[in-house]
Computed example of a mutant assay.
Amino acid sequence: MTPTDGRATDLRIAPIGDVLDRVERSLHVHLDRNTLVRKRRSIGARTNRDSWVRIERRPVEKILGQGWNGTECASALGGIAKPEWQESVSWRDPVEATMWRADETGLLPGPPIGSSVLATDPQLPEAWWQSLTTSLDALAGQDTTRVATPDTEVITQTLVTTTVQTAFPTRADTTIRRWSPAHADLNWANITAPHFCLFDWEDWGMAPRGLDSASLLGASLAVPTLADRVRSERRDDLESRDGKVMTLFVFAKFAGADAHPDDPRVEPARREAARIVSELQSA
């Protein structure tokens, strides 16, 4: 595959036939090409044995440390609505400085709710919201040595402080006081409905309290009623001191100085960020 810099390939448009063939041989499975879902750095397809295979490509420097077996490691987590992991295969690209990994899991109980950011209210049933809260609370109560990698970047105190201060300068102390396990890529493209199920676990690990709740809030701001429901359901996280810092961290990624002028989330995010900064400074 080209180019050979290990980072520039977009799997939505790159040739992937050889990758699919290799995965089929390694897992002894047939991938239904008619069900292919292609994203920038991952591919997914249904198999002939009623399972799903997700294939991901990452630069080598992005998998140092804890590795990138998140989906496999997440199989040990209890009390969370997620697909059952079955097996995997990984290999290093012989030309590029990249690694490939394919994970086979059970099928999802329903379709993803939408793209990562929603523009309309999905009108989710009460049972869905209950399952969301149960799953996120169960996740936060478990133990792991993994460290979360939102956007494939290891989350650290320095990253949090730098990101927040760059977008929303404040004199407030942004030191995180509580860390707990988080999915670290919680958005509307990684959740199913009408039955709640959280998938794509490659980035999960320890993170500041409130990261997941803030991420879902940030993905909901274009729909005020949806954002209000997220605030209500995840109030304990979002109203905690660490949760407020995480809200600034998440909002900084799309509402900072380089914000896209047509993004409907920008203005509500900036208003909420101003309130949070004021609260943190007066605390």
Results as ranks from 00 to 15, higher is better:
G6W: 03
R7N: 06
A8I: 02
L11Q: 04
A14C: 02
P15R: 10
L20E: 09
V23N: 01
V23R: 00
R25D: 09
V29R: 14
L31Y: 06
D32C: 05
D32A: 14
R38N: 00
R41D: 11
R41F: 10
A45L: 06
T47M: 08
D50I: 07
I55W: 08
E61H: 12
E61P: 01
K62I: 00
Q66L: 02
A74G: 03
L77W: 14
I80L: 07
A81K: 13
P83V: 12
E84G: 13
Q86L: 15
E87A: 14
S88F: 10
S90L: 06
S90Q: 12
A97C: 03
W100T: 02
R101M: 12
L107A: 06
L107S: 09
L108Q: 05
P109D: 06
P112Q: 09
A119F: 08
Q123A: 14
E126K: 12
E126V: 07
A127N: 08
W128K: 05
Q130D: 12
S131T: 14
T134Q: 15
D137A: 13
Q142C: 04
Q142Y: 01
V147S: 05
T149C: 06
E153N: 03
Q157Y: 08
L159Y: 05
V160E: 03
V160F: 06
T163Q: 11
Q165A: 09
T166F: 03
R171V: 00
T175R: 15
W179G: 05
L186C: 13
N187C: 14
A189T: 01
C197D: 08
L198M: 15
W204V: 01
M206D: 12
R209Y: 00
G210W: 08
D212F: 05
L221Y: 06
L221W: 02
A222L: 07
P224I: 04
T225Y: 02
D228N: 14
R234T: 06
R235K: 12
R241T: 11
K244W: 04
T247E: 15
F251Q: 12
F251N: 13
D263S: 07
A269K: 11
E272Y: 01
S278I: 00
E279I: 00
Q281S: 13
A283D: 14
